[in-house]
Structures are given as structure tokens and as C-alpha cells.
Simulated scan of single mutants.
Amino acid sequence: MKRLIISPFPKKNVPAPERELLELLFDTPELHFRSEQETFWYELLFGEKNTAPAFTSKGSIRIIQFNIQQADYPEETYSEWKTALLSFFNSDSILLELSRSYGLIIEPLSDSMLGEAELEAVADTLFSDFFLPVKFFMGLFHSKNPKLRAIFEEERALFDLSSERPIETVETASLAPLASSLKNSPIAAELVQLFIDDETLKPLIETLYKNQGNISLTAKDLYMHRNSIQYRLDKFQEQTNLSLRKPSGLLFAYLCTRIA
């Protein structure tokens, strides 16, 4: 039986000393799959690349990763938790259990797919019923083709367990690498200094971005008058010539807040 350290990010990205320590502390259980479908998906996504099975059917799927944010819990609770988790998804979905904390839901495209808000409600419900905190990563829809393994590896690398968000998506998780690329930018550094000088700017930009540029919702979240938000946006543009009313300007400023 194969033994494999499974994590939401490639093993090669973990420095050798830390990886050796993790392998000593956490004995990875042997993987036992209950169906041919589970074995198929494991071999496709994690097995030897030159022996990966080929698809026999068409259609699209998405892969939702999950990670339980708790180390110790009874086996009976875990078993009931997995049953409850699957009940929220299409009956044709497959739960691929890769460790006691990490696994995948492989879900065929259908008319009744959970959105980001619904998946967050699932996380809340599971915590209320079982007291097991869980983070999810919602992948994109992908057709069944030979590129799927490489696509999944990229999605797996984007799953950031340190994020405060209970639900991560490709679009939200991709912002961190984009922001990281700005660390050596003198332009970004100038904006970061502006955030340091005026501590109200960063929460304003973050809230405005969360609300997709909606000034009324931003004013409500920050307990400010709408005119006050308008004034702050005008003042920021006067200082920087960067308009937070434009999607591109707001995105750039938000990425700068991620490195501030």
C-alpha cells in the first residue's frame, strides 16, 4: 500500500528540516479507497504520472479541498462529519480522504452547485454540529482532459491554511502571489508608506474592495457617512492620481494593502 504525505501545498515547497519534522510528528495513515472511482481519482491526481489513468467519460468537474483545523477528535465524530459533509453535495460527488485532516470533494457539474456563501454556511453548520472547524478551497470548473492534474496542482498550491477566510477560491487565493510580486516595486512602496502615514486608508480600501466598489455598503460597514467616503476617495486620488472608483485602480491599491 502506498504511503504519501498529503498537504494542501506541494511537498517541494516545504524546506527539508521542516518537512522531516512534520513527517516525524505526523504519521501519515495508509490510504484505503472504498471504490474504483476513489482509486481512479487518486491515481490521476497523485499517482505516478506515466501510469495515470485516462478518462472514459466527458463532462466538467470541480475539486473542493477541505482541511479540518483541529488535531484530535474521536473517530466516530469524524465518520459522522464526513457523512454530513457529503450530504451537502451532488449524490454523484466523490469524497477522496487523503489524511485525517485533508481531503477532496470531486463534484460533477450540475444545476445545483454550492456557491461561496453556501459553502461558508456549510462550514458553519458542520462546526455547530460537530465542533470541528474546517477551511474549504473551491476550485474552478474544469473539463476532463490530460491537463487536469497540472491544474489541480496549482489549485492545491494556492490553498493557504493560514488565511483567515473560511472559504478560499482561485480568485481570492491568487491575489497573494500577485501582491508578493509588488514587494520590490517602488510605486507600491510609496503607497504602502501612505497607508502607514494614514492608518484609515488600509481598512477603507479593503472594505471598498470587499464590497466591489460599492460606496454605500462600504459606508455602512465602516459606520461612516456616504459623503465622508466620497471625500476620502477624492482626497486619495488628489494625493496619488489613483482612482479607487475604477476597478483597476481599486485592485492595484488593494494588492498594495496585502504587502503593507
Rank of each mutant, 00 (worst) to 15 (best):
I5E: 09
I5D: 13
P10S: 07
P10T: 00
K11C: 08
P15E: 06
P15R: 08
A16P: 02
A16E: 14
R19H: 00
F26E: 12
D27N: 13
T28L: 11
T28R: 09
E30W: 00
E30V: 01
H32T: 14
F33N: 09
E36P: 02
E43P: 04
L44V: 03
F46C: 02
G47L: 10
K49Y: 04
K49H: 03
K49P: 01
T51R: 12
P53T: 11
A54D: 10
F55I: 00
T56K: 01
G59R: 11
R62S: 10
N67Q: 11
Y73R: 12
P74I: 07
E76S: 15
S79E: 13
E80G: 05
E80Y: 08
W81G: 03
N90C: 14
I94T: 14
L95G: 02
E97D: 13
L98E: 03
I106A: 05
G115K: 10
L119V: 08
E120S: 14
E120V: 07
L126I: 08
D129K: 14
D129Y: 04
P133L: 11
F136I: 03
K144M: 13
L148N: 03
R149G: 03
A150Q: 15
F152I: 04
F152L: 07
E154G: 05
E154M: 08
R156K: 15
S162K: 15
S162P: 02
V170T: 15
E171P: 01
E171R: 12
T172F: 05
A173E: 12
S180Q: 15
S181H: 11
S181R: 15
S181E: 13
L182D: 03
N184Y: 00
I187V: 13
I187C: 07
I187W: 07
A188E: 09
A189N: 13
V192P: 05
F195E: 12
E199I: 00
T200Q: 08
E206P: 00
K210W: 05
K210D: 14
N214L: 07
I215A: 06
I215M: 09
T218I: 07
A219M: 02
K220N: 12
K220H: 06
L222I: 10
Y223I: 05
S228Y: 08
Q230F: 01
R232W: 09
Q237S: 11
E238N: 09
Q239D: 12
L242Q: 07
R245G: 01
K246S: 13
A253V: 06
Y254P: 01
Y254E: 08
Y254G: 01
L255G: 02
C256W: 10
C256I: 06
A260H: 14
